[in-house]
């Protein structure tokens, strides 16, 4: 609430780059799974930085602030960085599985997880919709433990 807030277009720019990286990885995955593994591996590192240090610290976050944002109009509102940071952690899981798949020859596994990541990145970049954030409440609801609710 009182956190400074970030330009909401930053995470969307990051998602657009994520989309491109996963898309190229998928296109190359059948012929060159090793290259695909490198791409998703690099993306996994980006996700890890975003989840661990915050979305503003990722290479794409830095690129957005230093190169893209100065060319845009000022944002009409700022957003809490916590949701996109959480989404980076979700993305990290998918990128790691995809990388393992491509690197170990389980190419289809890598492709499926890259596909899921593509869905999330596309929704984020085009619709500003955070899939991981939505799954969060569903996950909590499904989890067996039912903590303090009575008040």
């Amino acid at each position: 609430m009182s956190t400074p807030g970030i330009d909401p277009r930053g995470p969307r720019f990051t998602a657009a780059v994520t989309f491109v990286i996963f898309a190229v990885a998928l296109l190359l995955s059948d012929a060159r799974p090793g290259v695909a593994a490198v791409l998703t591996g690099v993306q996994a590192v980006f996700f890890a930085i975003g989840a661990g240090l915050g979305v503003q610290k990722t290479p794409t976050g830095v690129l957005f602030r230093s190169v893209v944002r100065p060319r845009l109009t000022p944002p009409d509102h700022l957003e809490d960085p916590a949701p996109p940071r959480f989404a980076q952690a979700v993305g990290l899981v998918f990128a790691v599985v995809a990388t393992i798949g491509f690197a170990t020859g389980a190419v289809l596994l890598g492709q499926v997880f890259a596909g899921f990541a593509i869905v999330a990145a596309f929704l984020n970049a085009v619709f500003a919709f955070c899939l991981g954030c939505e799954m969060y409440l569903l996950g909590l609801r499904l989890s067996p433990k039912s903590p303090t609710s009575g008040g």
Partner: peptide, 20 residues
């Protein structure tokens, strides 16, 4: 041997666009 990735990419994009 080259189409699986393309098919998954297209499926993912269509699914995401439709859902969005």
């Amino acid at each position: 041997n080259v189409v699986t990735g393309i098919v998954i990419l297209l499926l993912a994009v269509f699914a995401a666009a439709g859902f969005g």
